[in-house]
């Protein structure tokens, strides 16, 4: 589900998901008996590794998918989740369909 970037800072370098959008997504998941397990965001110049800003803003028990799109072309994607030391650890993922 695509959402808009409501970051009050420069939108080219920061993102924030509106609470209302998050709420809608959770309700939607609940209705279909699914679970909202994470979010994704893109890195337009960076690799698919989380930045320090990503880490500082991250919640535990939540997956962060980062898609690297240098020059707007897909290069790689990686899943991340905070460990007990508040550091990102990469998660193995499988695409089902």
């Amino acid at each position: 589900m695509p959402v808009s970037n409501v970051s009050p800072d420069c939108k080219e370098v920061r993102f924030e998901i509106a609470s209302r959008d998050f709420l809608v997504a959770e309700r939607l998941a609940e209705k279909d008996n699914l679970e909202l397990t994470g979010i994704y965001h893109t890195h337009l110049i960076d690799s698919a590794y989380p930045s320090e800003t990503d880490r500082m803003s991250a919640f535990p028990n939540f997956s962060y998918l980062i898609i690297s799109l240098p020059n707007l072309r897909f290069s790689e994607m990686r899943f991340w989740r905070l460990n007990s030391n508040n550091q990102f650890e990469e998660e193995v993922f499988e695409i089902l369909n």
């Binding site: 370098v13 920061r14 930045s51 990503d54 803003s57 939540f62």
Partner: peptide, 24 residues
Amino acid sequence: SIVPAIAGGVDFSKEELARYNRHI
């Protein structure tokens, strides 16, 4: 409803990204 503010971004400002572009 308790709603987390989900946010992130790169570690540089727009000005820094422009400044360091030839490195990046």
